[in-house]
Design a protein around this nucleic acid. Structure first.
Lengths: 339, 339
DNA sequence: GCAGGGCAAGATAGCGCTGTCTTTGGCCGA
DNA sequence: TCGGCCAAAGACAGCGCTATCTTGCCCTGC
């Protein structure tokens, strides 16, 4: 009896496509989704009708009927860090062509906020979730497990035995930085870090271990700042470190922007890099190869992490048996002028 | 008769919340949505029940029933440009607390791809769309108009009389760069640009006009490269320009990364900045203030653009009468050592 | 020649929520 | 005291699609 004030959207519906192509709505639905039990000529007819009408399926109706949306949730700790942007872009590039929507949750390095995002995003019934690292609340882990939605963990390796992960060993990367500086004959090695997230702390741990093994570890040469990493902060921390410990002859920065700030600050203060101090950055951001001197850095496969994580998830969704639950994409020490 | 293989999701539904709180599902729905015709004590009861059950509304069902999703589409030309990330983050920060999902479409500076994205994203029945600039296909414009979904245009001003926009005058910004260099006594002024999108070309136009008015315009001093803007490219274009025109004494770069690359290249080649050549960048990216010499740049309100555009859209959705259809947020010439 | 099996296509029945109309009940003025 | 009115709560139906079951057909094998 509802005549007045139609609640319809005005957009063409599956029923109209079905009518135009002379089949039932279900067949039209199957044809458009590529379900293989439909005769090829019918598929063509349906697709033609859909094109003619400008039909695009209503994702809400689809999600409601199938109890699953065509979307993937990505939870990252920050949008301000180039690192995650590269990863995000790679994920987008894999997912979009498959017709999957990417829902981005920025939890600002806060596990409580991440838990909230998980609670809310699970309501979307995503077909998969891409997470950063393994550090989250008990409640968040339980919700994820209870939902049954496939998860892939990015950036770190390890975690629970049944967890899929794509990343590299942050700790090994820290070790590599230390070993490189030691090989270069440096003995008073500093560590400068900001935004002390779990991955930064893993790098710190690796760096410390390598120094300790060489009998060179001196906690006084560590500058750990909780605030976000930035070029300006890098310059400041570098100045402080040098002012307090003039004998420092090598520094590992937990992120390239800190190292870049330090190089520029050194240039300003007339401190010779690498003559007086060698520097090693992390992530190999675009500017690093162009600085004066060019910055030695540990190149991390951040785009590859996004791409492989996305593909691993897709493989899992396609029902393929995923053998390698944990993919180590490694890292690469790129030696340049600063060391 | 469907007993076996329940199609339900296992998640608590509105009906369960209603049952637990002793009201009808509709009342529960209204209570949770904040519809004001529900008695306060009932609202509290319903909210308590929802919390107790861990209820989160199913967005798909909600969108289907109301013919509108709680999401906003943002279409940007690139994720690789820090500019758009800042804008995006600001949009996120405004929308998320309002419970609105942000759907990001990256159209890679391609109007055909943008048209496609619009077609597909309209199927989501978003409650608003944020667009970059005014340059799009006829079909895209028609779809947007036909959909009736409110749009806000970012980054540029002007456009159709009924269009809402938040941005600044790209052309004026180009003029400002030229005027600054002219005031500094520079006479042989170069223009270096990449990623020649409509906004870059507007800046170019403003720059040219100011030069022409001063009788200083020389097309030979323009370097226009279609590829994406980058530090490396900036260094290359700078070298080429100087090699071909040794008398150039001032350069305006359409983006800071180009200018940064040029400054570093100059440092390497021993070219004095600003002694021999003054440089002005665009966007005032984070590194610019720290380079040696510090880069003069035109600071653009990219985060503010995102924030205001988002708020303008929200105001429109709240039914507020929007007076200022076009918001000019201006720009700021930040003079530093490079000029 | 006919039973049985397999497969393509359709009928049916919701998914979980909200727009719309209807009902209920309390309060006011006459 | 009573009719009328308004606000609050509920009944009903349906948004557009797909999971599931059913039907009908053709082919195979004895």
């Amino acid at each position: 009896m509802s005549r007045i004030g139609s609640r319809t959207t005005g957009r063409p519906t599956l029923a109209e496509v079905a009518r135009l192509s002379g089949v039932s709505p279900i067949t039209a639905s199957r044809a458009l989704r590529g379900v293989c039990t439909v005769a090829p000529e019918l598929v063509q007819k349906v697709k033609d009708a859909a094109t003619a009408l400008g039909y695009v399926a209503n994702p809400a109706a689809r999600a409601l009927a199938s109890a699953q949306s065509q979307s993937v949730v990505v939870l990252i700790p920050s949008l301000s860090n180039q690192l995650f942007i590269d990863t995000l872009e790679a994920i987008h590039d894999v997912m979009r062509p498959r017709g999957l929507e990417v829902l981005i949750g920025n939890f600002h390095y806060d596990v409580a906020e991440e838990e909230n995002l998980i609670r809310n995003y699970l309501a979307y019934q995503p077909c998969g979730i891409l997470l950063t690292g393994f550090d989250r609340t008990e409640a968040a882990q339980q919700m994820l497990a209870a939902s049954g939605v496939p998860c892939v963990h990015m950036m770190e390796l390890g975690g629970p035995a049944d967890a899929m992960s794509v990343g590299f060993s942050q700790q090994q990367a820290g070790r590599a930085a230390a070993q490189h500086l030691i090989e270069r004959g440096r003995r008073r090695l500093g560590f400068v870090a900001a935004q002390l997230d779990p991955r930064v702390m893993q790098r710190a741990e690796g760096f410390r271990q390598a120094l300790a093994e060489a009998g060179l570890y001196d906690p006084a040469l560590e500058m750990l700042a909780p605030q976000p990493s930035s070029i300006g902060l890098g310059g400041e921390l570098f100045s402080q470190l040098i002012a307090g410990h003039g004998d420092v002859d090598g520094i590992f920065f937990c992120n390239d922007d800190l190292a870049q700030g330090a190089i520029l600050q050194a240039l300003r203060q007339g401190i010779d890099v690498p003559g007086q101090v060698a520097m090693v950055g992390f992530n190999d951001l675009p500017a690093s190869a162009h600085l004066v001197p060019r910055l030695t850095s540990i190149r991390t496969p951040r785009a590859a992490v996004g791409r492989q994580a996305a593909q691993a998830l897709l493989a899992r969704l396609d029902g393929k048996v995923v053998q390698t639950r944990s993919q180590d994409l490694g890292f690469e020490l790129v030696v340049r002028e600063s060391s």
